[in-house]
């Protein structure tokens, strides 16, 4: 099995890891870098639980080859602890009651961060479209949309 050494920044920290070529960024983040906030939900890009930012752009990390992170900036939910917009979104999720089992929440927060960066004042409909790639089984999405809307108004 071919291993590849890659250098990238993980939440701002220069990082070097050696990974099998076919490993996903999700596996690398969880099992090699040890950050478990990014979740495995389906492995097919259908649920959004593994959403991360690569050079500021949101992606399903389960579909991303880890080797493609070489030379780039990876941001995970843990990285939002140092980001004012990220923290505002997380607080809005708590305050709006947007968290139930919480398994989809990190991915939702990451996608919300992307959405608000591209469109700081989205309509409710735009928020719903913005998170169409993130599945939630608990909340019925209403309070997640409330949370993102509230975060956009602060």
């Amino acid at each position: 099995m071919s291993q590849q050494t890659i250098d990238f920044t993980l939440n701002g920290v220069p990082t070097r890891v050696s990974v099998p070529v076919q490993m996903s960024a999700l596996e690398m983040i969880r099992n090699v870098a040890g950050l478990t906030g990014t979740k495995y939900g389906c492995g097919e890009g259908e649920c959004g639980a593994c959403t991360i930012l690569l050079d500021g752009v949101s992606l399903n990390s389960c579909l991303l080859f880890a080797v493609e992170c070489d030379g780039r900036a990876v941001t995970t939910i843990e990285g939002l602890a140092a980001d004012p917009v990220g923290l505002r979104i997380e607080k809005a999720f708590v305050d709006a009651g947007a968290v139930q089992c919480g398994f989809c929440t990190p991915g939702m927060v990451m996608q919300a961060k992307q959405l608000l960066e591209q469109n700081p004042h989205p309509s409710r409909e735009e928020i719903q479209r913005g998170i169409e790639g993130n599945l939630c089984r608990c909340t019925g999405y209403v309070k997640i949309v409330d949370a993102i809307e509230a975060a956009s108004k602060e």
Binding site: G45, T51, S58, L59, N60, L63, E132, G133, N134
Partner: peptide, 9 residues
């Protein structure tokens, strides 16, 4: 096309 995350990739 798919979802926001997939459109980005």
């Amino acid at each position: 096309f798919a979802s926001g995350q997939i459109r980005n990739a």
